[in-house]
Nucleic acid binder design. Structure first.
Length: 235
RNA sequence: CUUGGUAGCA
């Protein structure tokens, strides 16, 4: 297994998914690692439908999906907004696991969020034994995706009250939520908190979010001033 | 510490 899988992985890393696939197709004794390697590659190149097909093939071979594979395929369901398939995987997880792996839980929250099932995402989020920054960020993203700007900010407050530190990704969600909801004052405040309170390295994407927010809400002069005083060189 | 995994704006 290991050598064949490593070759598949090598082609994937070289962005040569066709070669990866032909090696994969010529392997006997495929295992979950080989399937997951290719599944991730298909998702990364935007072909989640093929990823889901591969998953079904692995099921047909009676390979029991492990947590890694389950998280991968939930990601594919999320990308395709395939709620039916996602629920199917969810049922499998519930039936086959005594404990929910945190990455799998996170992938479930993300999948339900992207499929528009905010209530189910929240239910899983609340029932998870442990939550990490990905869990919180996924839930925030779920609210943001539905346009619930106020809920995003509220949950962001709760997150910090519970002692969870946001990271650069969390702030991307927060800033874009402020932008979409027209919450300019909050957006500017959070932008400052990010580097000054949370010591997060400011990235170009964060600045783009802020500019986006200012422009959207008609603050063109402020946007221009900000652009002229960017903390980093635009690329 | 290298065969696979979950969150990111426009």
């Amino acid at each position: 297994h290991a050598i064949g899988n490593a070759i598949v992985h090598m082609y994937v890393k070289c962005d040569s998914i066709e070669d990866a696939r032909s090696v994969f197709d010529n392997m006997q004794n495929l295992d979950v690692v080989g399937f997951s390697t290719l599944i991730v590659a298909y998702i990364a190149c935007g072909n989640s439908a093929e990823a889901i097909k591969l998953f079904q093939q692995s099921k047909a071979r009676a390979l029991a999906p492990d947590n890694i594979m389950v998280a991968c395929i939930l990601d594919a369901c999320a990308a395709e907004a395939d709620l039916a398939q996602g629920k199917h995987i969810h049922a499998y997880i519930v039936a086959s696991r005594s404990e929910l792996d945190i990455a799998v839980g996170n992938a479930l929250v993300d999948m339900y969020g992207k499929c528009g099932s905010l209530d189910i995402a929240l239910d899983i989020f609340q029932k998870m034994k442990k939550q990490d920054v990905v869990t919180w960020t996924s839930m925030l993203a779920a609210y943001a995706y539905q346009g619930c700007g106020e809920e995003v900010l509220h949950l962001f407050g709760v997150m910090q009250l519970k002692g969870h530190m946001p990271n650069d990704v969390t702030y991307m969600i927060i800033l874009s939520a402020c932008s979409h909801a027209g919450l300019i004052t909050h957006g500017c405040l959070f932008f400052l908190c990010m580097s000054r309170i949370h010591n997060i390295l400011l990235k170009e994407e964060h600045c783009n979010c802020l500019i986006n927010m200012l422009v959207r809400s008609g603050c063109l002069d402020e946007a221009e001033e900000f652009i002229n005083n960017l903390p980093m060189h635009p690329t």
